[in-house]
Computed example of a mutant assay.
Amino acid sequence: MPLVDSKAMLIYAMENKFAIGAFNANNMEIAQAIVEAAEEEKAPVIVQISQGAIEYAGENCLFSIVKSLADKASVPVVCHLDHGVDFNTVIKALKAGFTSLMFDGSSLPFEENVRITKKLAEIAHAAGVPLEGEIGKVPDAAKGPLSPEEVQKYLTTPEEAKEFCEKTGVDSLAVSVGSAHRMKVQSARLDIERIAKIKEKVKVPLVLHGASGVLDESVVEAIKAGISKINFATELNKAFTNALRQKLTSDPDLVDVRKYGAVARENVKRIVREKINLLNSAGKAEEVLSFISKNDYFKRYIDKSAIVE
């Protein structure tokens, strides 16, 4: 089926207390694994392309892969820009056809983040596409060990989350509640009370980034408290790389990329299926599709004049 946008999908998840898995794809095999896993679990899914992935492979190449997979899929698939950290990257992804966007202005002063996010939300909405914003900042574990004090200073407050949403018009909001990007070990516990307090103030679906490093039981608690979209990237990269390493170590003469690529793809698919079940989105594809069909939040045309260079 055609790609769908993320707005109705996330609203349905929010109202029904489960979460949509958002999985980062850096190549064809990972994208295939994500969509195949969603099909096998009959789950709605978001395939994410980060700004780093765009710099690696190009937005048009990666979008074409995701679109071709979605066209043949029986479950709703979103192609989402993850962590667009500058205005031009968000616009490039919109022009390429992405059906969901994120602008990450969390490293900017609050008012600057609001200004750019608001402008991008206006442009995206004119083109029929939802925009995710971020307030607070999810730290990067790859830059070194994070102390509890360091994590604490990045956390989102309910008051700033409310103000940010009201001023920008975003369709979903990424919040910092105790996770970190690029954690290689599941050890983080989330601030569940903070999530619940933010949810009281904010009406749009909440997004958890850096979930690869979060303990499963904390993920489940976060969903109950109000998280509706949960992002996984590092765990997929680990699964892909570990499978490649094992295959090439056991068969050092192997040179056929299809054979070791297939092994890596299957290992990623296993992880995605596990996460879909953890988020309780397995079996939800049909009801999500029904909700989407009844709730067309955006006009289905592209206003080219809204897309600026």
Rank of each mutant, 00 (worst) to 15 (best):
I54Y: 08
V151Q: 07
H80Y: 10
I65Q: 08
C61E: 15
E111Y: 13
V129E: 00
F87P: 01
L146C: 10
A73E: 00
I49G: 08
Q51M: 15
K95D: 12
A93D: 05
V47G: 06
C165K: 06
A121C: 15
Q152F: 12
S100T: 12
E149L: 05
V151G: 08
F87W: 10
V185F: 15
G136Y: 03
E111W: 13
S106R: 01
K143M: 15
V151M: 05
A73Q: 00
R182F: 07
G58I: 11
V78H: 01
V85M: 15
D171C: 12
I116N: 07
K143Q: 15
V175D: 03
S74H: 14
V151R: 07
K92H: 11
H125S: 10
A161I: 03
E160C: 00
E149G: 12
E112V: 13
D104R: 03
E149C: 01
G52P: 09
V77R: 06
F164N: 02
K67W: 04
E132Y: 04
E159Q: 10
S50D: 14
L69K: 13
P158T: 04
P130R: 00
A124S: 15
I46Q: 06
F110C: 06
K137S: 14
G144T: 05
Y154P: 01
T156P: 03
V114S: 11
K184G: 10
S107F: 00
S179N: 08
A73K: 00
V151K: 08
V78F: 09
G97C: 02
V170R: 07
T156F: 11
V185D: 05
D140E: 14
I46M: 15
K162D: 07
I116Y: 11
A93M: 01
D104M: 02
E159Y: 02
C79T: 13
L146F: 10
M183F: 14
A53F: 10
I65A: 02
F103L: 06
S68N: 14
G97F: 00
G133Q: 01
G178T: 04
P44A: 15
V177H: 09
A70T: 01
K95G: 05
P148M: 01
Q152H: 12
A73Y: 00
L173G: 13
V177W: 13
I123Y: 02
K119L: 13
P148S: 09
V185Q: 05
K72S: 08
V78E: 04
N88Y: 14
D71R: 08
S107A: 09
C165Q: 12
E55C: 10
A127T: 04
P109D: 15
G52A: 14
A141V: 05
K153E: 14
E163H: 11
M183D: 12
G97M: 05
C79I: 10
S50Y: 07
V78G: 02
T89L: 02
V78C: 14
G178S: 08
L108D: 03
E150H: 08
E59I: 13
K119N: 12
E122I: 04
S68V: 11
V75L: 03
A141E: 07
V151F: 07
V90E: 11
I135W: 01
A121V: 14
T157V: 00
H181R: 09
K167Y: 10
V90P: 03
V151I: 14
R115M: 15
P109C: 12
L108H: 02
P148V: 06
I91M: 12
P76I: 11
